[in-house]
Write a protein that binds this DNA or RNA. Structure first.
Ligand SMILES: [Mn+2]
Ligand SMILES: [Mn+2]
Ligand SMILES: [Mn+2]
Ligand SMILES: [Mn+2]
Lengths: 217, 217
DNA sequence: CTAAAAATTTAGGCTTACCTAAATTAATAA
DNA sequence: TTATTAATTTAGGTAAGCCTAAATTTTTAG
């Protein structure tokens, strides 16, 4: 059984890998809020246990074993977020932090019970896919709102859950999963957007638009 | 914030204290499954942080600070047991072990939400009182079934939750909280009892009877 | 193609919470 | 009351995960 710390390392390596960039010591250190030297230590340990391969000075890559372990934690994390949201009525912006702890101590039995109670959900409250027990992950076919052309009508499929303040803000302007909106105008100057939600028109910055993922509709 | 280990020490010291015996290094070591020397280490640390007083070679006693901390954990433990039982339909014999982990990572906010969802329960699924937020504990006025006189009609108020096998067994003979039964016969030879539950008569050993707490009815 | 800057690893330490073996103190039995 | 025995503490160690400072390797800019 991997420790809590090992689980968090594997999960963050998986996330970074998903984003396509090389997973470097410093990117990991940044994600985990840990000194680079400490990451090197742990990476050596994980490599010894065949969770990943490490090319010194180059970066790391999960092995199949590492990937499986990471997906188990991510599944628990997202199921727990769902549970907090649906059953205990926690807010969009609170659940990630809570799930960060519970993901490590949830037994497989509890995972199953919760999956059942929730009716076997496929996505978490932020639109991220919940990995299946067999290690399959459906990837969400969505593009960032910041890439939507002017006039386009879209539906929100996912919002980046890494920043509670962003989630808070996105809620506050009336956006949530599956909400429709249209792009009224793209401001060339600062690349911000003017979008229409229901009858309201709102200006949002690129930073925000880059973290909202949509599909054309 | 006390660590997980500190919390478990405080909780077990509280339990031992409740039983009325002196809380010795070895009794603690026994409860926690830890070497006596390790307990001495921790006791010194806890004493330094004013969670308890330690008379070397004599034993320990919780301070007010220590008692409050212990009760907080016990409240979380019992609320979580209740939640596992009522919402996720875990068995009587499984919930203690699960709650052992969750008690340490449940935020105060989650504690409140769960309390609400459950309708502010006063006792846990084993009949143990759930301490109030202000540190009050109602003590259950129950006596061990092993002390019930022949012919007495009683109601089950509490079952010792320390042993999953006992709980399993108690369930299997049709006993649960608030069930009524009567003592048909006390066997002098081995102090076992013959009890009547509904229409069935069952023989139970003293060991079992000592862990079932009842009130006359 | 170098020299400076940036990233990474190594070296040496720290804290928490354990452990075993040895020494000390307390309890008990003759 | 003294000699065993039992309980407790002290001494010396270990493993996990972290840290800072120093060395090393890679990248980048001139
Ligand atoms: Mn985590
Ligand atoms: Mn999420
Ligand atoms: Mn515990
Ligand atoms: Mn209980």
């Amino acid at each position: 059984m991997p420790s809590i710390n090992v689980e968090d390392y594997l999960k963050h390596i998986y996330y970074l890998q998903e984003e396509g960039d090389a997973v470097t010591t410093s990117s990991l250190a940044g994600q985990l809020n840990i000194a680079a030297a400490s990451v090197t230590d742990m990476v050596k340990k994980l490599s010894g246990q065949h969770y990943l391969r490490h090319l010194p000075y180059r970066g790391v890559q999960l092995t199949e074993k590492g990937r499986r372990s990471a997906l188990k934690i991510i599944r628990k994390h997202r199921l727990w977020e769902m549970f907090l949201s649906e059953v205990l009525h926690f807010g969009w912006d609170e659940i990630d932090e809570e799930a960060e702890k519970f993901e490590h101590i949830m037994s497989d039995k509890m995972e199953e019970r919760i999956d059942e109670v929730l009716g076997f959900p496929r996505v978490d409250p932020h639109g991220d896919p919940i990995p299946a027990k067999n290690g399959t992950v459906k990837n969400i076919r969505a593009f960032p709102l910041s890439d939507a052309p002017e006039g386009n009508s879209v539906r929100v499929l996912r919002v980046n859950d890494a920043n509670p303040e962003l989630l808070q803000y996105v809620s506050s302007i009336g956006l949530s999963l599956n909400k429709r909106l249209s792009v009224k105008q793209r401001i060339k100057f600062d690349k911000s957007l003017i979008i229409k939600i229901g009858s309201k028109e709102i200006a949002i910055s690129t930073v925000v638009a880059e973290n909202i993922f949509v599909e054309s509709v």
